[in-house]
Design a protein around this nucleic acid. Structure first.
Length: 379
RNA sequence: GGUGGGUUAUCCAAGUGGCUAAAGGAUGUUGACUGUAAAUCAAUCGGGCUCCGCCCUUCGAUGGUUCGAAUCCAUCACCCACCA
């Protein structure tokens, strides 16, 4: 089997899969969590830190990098990998999500999305042609199609329209990738399934995109403010209609328990700003749930965030010290807490992979979630 | 010794008769954060309670004027500036 995606093992009690995805910058073991590095940096940490905590692949963002410093500049300087000093795989988001998050400054047209730059108000346009050109410039290993990500809640009409536009754009992106030799060179292009909370829309979108034969499939339109049950329903009503021999990726998710639940639904790839963003705000993850280091109860706590956890932060620093850094506004706090949180997420994924291989994923996952949710951590 | 200015809650600092438990900032405390316009944002911040409301105690100290004072008057204490 010389496919770019290989399934190594499957869980008997769920749809969880253990796989391997080949990219131009190496193989990725799935399920995988991808730290988010929107602007060509995973905030607060260096590529060396990323390696150390076990990152296999990171994200970049088409919208942001094209506005600043500009994709042609990045191309001129050797592509995003060289530019940012990261030689592992990079997935670039297309900017579709920015339609949602920057909604006040956008206009969705048939051929793409007109934005106003959030930086200086300059007009900016992203359509299939633009996003593929930018992602080619960046040297993306996995390029995402441009899509329309509707908010939650959203009407059936709006959801259907977003699905239709996204499907059209997806086909255009794939066509461009074929014509330009992007795919043949070993880059991947992933489709994005929309459909909001409408199961039939999700299903038809998934089936139609599947028929186009993409190297991978993403589930979009989640993590837009919907309650967790809705979110899991949307994922669960999409994955059955995606080809099982292609990687599946839920965009922008999630919390540790959510990720385990989605692995059980057959999802292979995840990205989320949560571990990095909340780290900069003082929140850290532990097997007994998250806690905020700013809390006074850690004032004199000499223990590491997680006893025995093998990362730079837990090996060397006490909760009391990290709390001090956070309260003092020291930038090192963001760095050390990000290192811990990323390691926590990536270590969780490594455990999940091992348990899928070992055949006891569901049992392990259930007890992991139970402990996490019961946790009054740090007490 | 003289003249002028000042003393407000943990800190800084508004407030010159009622709408003031007292602006604003800082600090503190708590919470939020899900394809990153986030090293951000929000709440709370005299004490107590049967806590969508009520009761105490506050604006250097004491005494006074007034229906009512952080706000006016007197005395005292301390601080600052300038002049001797």
């Amino acid at each position: 089997m010389d496919s770019h995606f290989q399934l190594v093992a499957r869980d008997a009690a769920s749809a969880a899969r253990r796989g391997r995805l080949r990219t131009r910058h190496g193989w990725i073991e799935t399920p995988v969590f991808m730290p988010v590095g929107t602007q060509g940096t995973v905030k607060a940490v260096t590529p060396a830190h990323l390696r150390e905590v076990g990152a296999q692949i990171i994200l970049g963002n088409t919208y942001h990098l094209n506005l600043r410093p500009g994709s042609t500049l990045v191309a001129k300087l050797g592509g995003l990998h060289k530019f940012m000093g990261w030689d592992g795989p990079i997935l670039t988001d297309s900017g579709g999500f920015q339609v949602f998050s920057l909604a006040k400054l956008r206009e969705v047209r048939e051929d793409g999305i007109a934005f106003q730059s959030h930086l200086d108000g300059a007009p900016c346009f992203l359509g299939p042609k633009e996003v593929m050109a930018i992602q080619r410039d960046l040297g993306s290993d996995i390029a995402m199609v441009i899509d329309e990500c509707p908010p939650f809640p959203c009407t059936r009409e709006a959801a259907a329209a977003a699905v239709a536009r996204s499907r059209k754009w997806a086909g255009d992106c794939l066509g461009i990738a074929r014509e330009t030799g992007f795919l043949d060179a070993g880059h991947h292009v992933f489709a994005i399934v929309q459909g909001s909370t409408f199961e039939d829309l999700r299903r038809s979108a998934a089936e139609e995109l599947a028929s186009l034969d993409f190297p991978g499939y993403a589930i979009g339109g989640v993590s837009v403010g919907e309650p967790e049950p809705e979110m899991l329903d949307q994922v669960g009503s999409t994955t059955p209609f995606l080809p099982s021999d292609r990687p599946r990726y839920t965009m922008g998710l999630g919390t540790p328990p959510q990720i385990l639940k989605m692995i059980a639904l057959g999802v292979d790839m995840f990205d989320c700003v949560m571990p990095t963003r909340v780290a900069r705000n003082g929140l850290v993850f532990t097997p007994d749930g998250p806690f905020n280091l700013r809390n006074e109860r850690f004032r004199e706590d000499a223990r590491p965030i997680v006893e025995g956890m093998d990362n730079y932060t837990c090996r060397n620093f006490s909760r009391a010290y990290l709390r001090h850094l956070q309260l003092a506004g020291e930038m090192l706090a963001g760095t050390l807490l990000t290192i811990h949180n990323l390691h926590f997420y990536l270590d969780l994924m490594a455990q999940a992979r091992a348990h899928i291989e070992a055949g006891d994923f569901t049992r392990w996952s259930t007890s992991w979630i139970t402990r996490y949710e019961a946790g009054a951590a740090g007490g």
